[in-house]
C-alpha cells in the first residue's frame, strides 16, 4: 500500500506491507533512528512519538494508520538549529543516563509543557507514567521537564544561554 507520512515536516512516501509497524517505518524507511524499540509489547514507551501532537506508542500502530498524519520524533525537536527547551533542560538537569528512554521522555515532556508549562511533580510523574527509565533516573527527568516548562513560560528560546 502506498502511503505518505509527514515526519518533522518532511513527507516520506513508500509502498509498504500493511503489517509494517509504524516504529519500523520511522526507523528503517525514514531512517530516523532516534525513536527506539524496547519491549515491543506496548509497555515501556521508548517508541513514543507525537502523532498530530499527541504522544503515542508506535510499536502498537501500523504505518498505514499514519498515512496522511503528521509525526514529530526526537529529530524534529530542535528549532532553527537551536536545542528545544526540553532538550536544553535535559542537558542542564542531567535528565538522562544511558539515553535509551530519553527521546520518548523529551517528546512526552514537550507535549505536557505545551498544555501545562508549570506542572507539579505529581503532574509530570503522571504524564510520564507510561514511559520506563530502567536507569531509574526519574528525579532528574522530572526536574528537566519542569525546567523546560519554566523556560517556555518565561518566553526564553531555551538554548540555555
Amino acid at each position: 500500500m502506498e502511503i505518505t507520512v509527514t515526519i518533522n515536516g518532511t513527507d516520506h512516501s513508500a509502498d509498504v506491507e500493511p503489517r509494517l509497524l509504524l516504529v519500523d517505518f520511522i526507523r528503517t524507511t525514514a531512517g530516523l533512528t532516534g525513536t527506539h524499540i524496547g519491549c515491543d509489547t506496548v509497555s515501556c514507551g521508548v517508541c513514543t512519538v507525537l502523532v498530530d501532537g499527541a504522544p503515542m506508542k508506535t510499536c502498537a500502530m501500523f504505518a498505514v494508520q499514519a498515512n496522511g498524519r503528521s509525526l514529530t520524533t526526537v529529530e524534529g525537536l530542535k528549532q532553527n538549529g537551536e536545542l528545544h527547551p526540553i532538550q536544553a533542560a535535559f542537558k542542564e538537569e542531567h535528565g538522562l543516563q544511558c539515553g535509551f528512554c530519553t527521546p520518548a521522555m523529551m517528546l512526552v515532556g514537550s507535549a505536557l509543557i505545551e498544555e501545562n508549562p508549570n506542572p507539579t511533580d505529581e503532574e509530570v510523574r503522571w504524564a510520564i507514567s507510561g514511559n520506563k527509565c530502567r536507569c531509574t533516573g526519574y528525579i532528574n527527568i522530572v526536574k528537566a521537564i519542569q525546567t523546560a516548562g519554566a523556560t517556555v513560560s518565561a518566553g526564553d528560546n531555551g538554548d540555555g544561554q
Binding site: V42, G45, P55, M56, K57, A60, V108, A127, G130
Partner: peptide, 9 residues
C-alpha cells in the same frame, strides 16, 4: 485505564 499514552489511542 492503562497508561497516558495508551489512553490517547
Amino acid at each position: 485505564v492503562a497508561d497516558p499514552l495508551v489512553r490517547n489511542r
